[in-house]
Design a protein around this nucleic acid. Structure first.
Lengths: 203, 203, 203, 203
DNA sequence: GATGAATGAGCGTTCATTCAT
DNA sequence: AATGAATGAACGCTCATTCAT
């Protein structure tokens, strides 16, 4: 958690620091990411950094909080436009679509997230243990609701399928880029994907 | 590429170096992985290391070559046992099963692979750009064969579905561990997974 | 010397600062003692500190003045109760006894004093050069009086013996703690000590 | 404990490092002492230092070992010249004399020792707890022998008197310097001191 | 008089790599 | 071919002090 001094800073300076930090952690693993670099790019004094944050790990965790927060805004938009009569597969489509759009607009944040998920350093492991199950629980809950609503067949194992949907959700951002660069027809892709899943588990 | 001096070493010494390197890169990101540590654990002189390899990156690339080579042995076994009358979905099951088994028996190698895929450092990006399309091309080829053989319906986009199957293949190893530890029933999991896919794209 | 602003502070704030400073200098050498820490524990603004004192050294010297002042109160009590018919060795006993009691009740102040005596940093050396001779002069004076009064034999060298008595006085506080913790019978100890000295130099 | 690499160095370089370290620790408390400074004065690369020692604490402990070792040479000389028919007080005189001479010739080592005894930092406390009782035990042992031999009267408490003699031993070096500089007649001083003690505890 | 953000020199330490033997 | 000492840039971080408000 940043210290209160960080929140007392004017918006511009705070933004400069966060921007520099995102840049650095997006292009480097936790250990490679250099506080020295962030300080240089944010144009603050080295001592100042430690008046805002407890240290490298503190900044990193704050960055992850920001990512979750920003991603939730996308999900919220989906949920807002999701009247109860939408079925599970339409909901899933909106969710994945939101995820893709978020990834498209925030490639650096996605990069940080991916590094977190795959880096075996102690800090990353610790943070993962706190955060991992949340996404799976979310998918499990909406799957159970979908079974109850009759959208999804009863025989599937919600826990396993939740893992499956989570995994796809995580790797979705990989679909944005083809061998040759940005894939402009991602939305078609999503629809095909949903079709496959729908054929697999619909009631 | 290791220098010729490395291949002139006796097997035992070479093994010690590779073992130490796998250990180090399996538990640390490229940057955090310490040549100093590898040298210590392999019990060689620090100067010697630079007579075998050009540096850290050279060793890392060699390690990745070893991983690909070892994984191909598993796939080869599957292909060997794969008479032409096996249909696409049985083949896919064997492939994934082989992947899971490989992951189970070589957790350190999988760990290195995951790090490679998700680390945005220059070295990792460079290597990925060289290696990424290979797996997708493999799946695309067998998908096209499966369409021709009538196992898979014609309407699907082979390129997209190849990406999809590749992505699942990569994330498969995540299924080995549940929240509570080792998942003993992975094979059931695979079957459920294949069923979902089969329902989605079969002819 | 604290600035006048310090003396304009209300007693409570002044006490908080001195308390925090004593705590810090009692547990750390001059260099390790942290103004930052003192500021935090005294709950004042960092800028304020430099409106009260010229800096770390200024505060330290002020602390030493306080210690001397407080110790003199103990000695004063001894002197007050010291009618002229007390002989030198009774006086010495009272003096040492007072010292022990002071050390017992003010372990932090003693700790600061010991650090001052043994730290070779420039600040400490400078202060020592100003303060060291005072104690020796005190003992020399009362020794000369004791010789005149016939309590102590004429052959001893007052200057040397003053050094000797001063040195014992300084190290007296070490006797409070045995290897196994607090020594409950310190007063017996003192008496034995005085006996040894008395046998050594009495007339 | 220095690493083996340190002992592989040629004598000259080793001496330069130890000299620089003694200089630094003699004039600064443990925390103030700067490895950077030692490195600069010893004219070695910063990385080299950490190939010789595990770090600051390791070097400090090694320095203390050197001090003990060098001081024991003085004591050994005394013991060598100490035929059994020497009585306790002659022995004590030689011991103190040796101590004084050692302090005279090695003021920096004495300075380091004094700092160790009086610095409340964790490192110093830890080391003290391991080393403190040794000196007192030494004096207690020879006191008990002296009582048995009839040199010292039976009524004294050996433990207390050992503390007393140890304390004098420690503070002896303070006698070398008077207010006005080096005291040339230290040996007379010692004799007077021994006389006082002898009058106090002899049989 | 009070505040607390800003500063930057300095610290101990790590590490990939070089090079003389 | 083998050795291991030497190197020095870079790192995360601390701290006394300054200064604008």
């Amino acid at each position: 958690m940043p210290k209160s001094t960080f929140y007392n800073l004017d918006q511009k300076k705070r933004d400069r620091i966060i921007e520099a930090a995102i840049d650095e952690f997006a292009t480097n693993s936790f250990h490679k990411a250099s506080i020295t670099n962030i300080i240089k790019n944010a144009e603050i004094a080295s001592g100042s950094f430690y008046q805002y944050f407890d240290g490298k790990e503190d900044l990193y965790i704050h960055l992850l909080d920001i990512i979750v927060e920003r991603k939730l805004e996308y999900i919220d938009q989906v949920v807002m436009n999701n009247p109860n009569d939408l079925n599970f597969f339409n909901f899933l489509e909106k969710l994945y679509r939101g995820g893709i759009e978020f990834a498209k607009e925030n490639p650096r944040l996605i990069s940080i997230g991916k590094n977190l998920m795959n880096n075996n350093c102690e800090v990353c492991k610790k943070i993962r243990e706190q955060q991992k199950p949340q996404s799976e629980r979310f998918f499990k809950k909406i799957l159970e609701q979908a079974i109850e609503a009759g959208d999804v067949k009863e025989e599937i194992d919600p826990e396993l399928t939740a893992k499956f949907l989570t995994s796809i959700n995580y790797s979705l951002s990989d679909f944005i880029y083809t061998e040759d660069g940005l894939n402009e027809n991602v939305m078609d892709t999503i629809n095909e994907l949903i079709d496959i899943i729908e054929n697999g588990i619909k009631n």
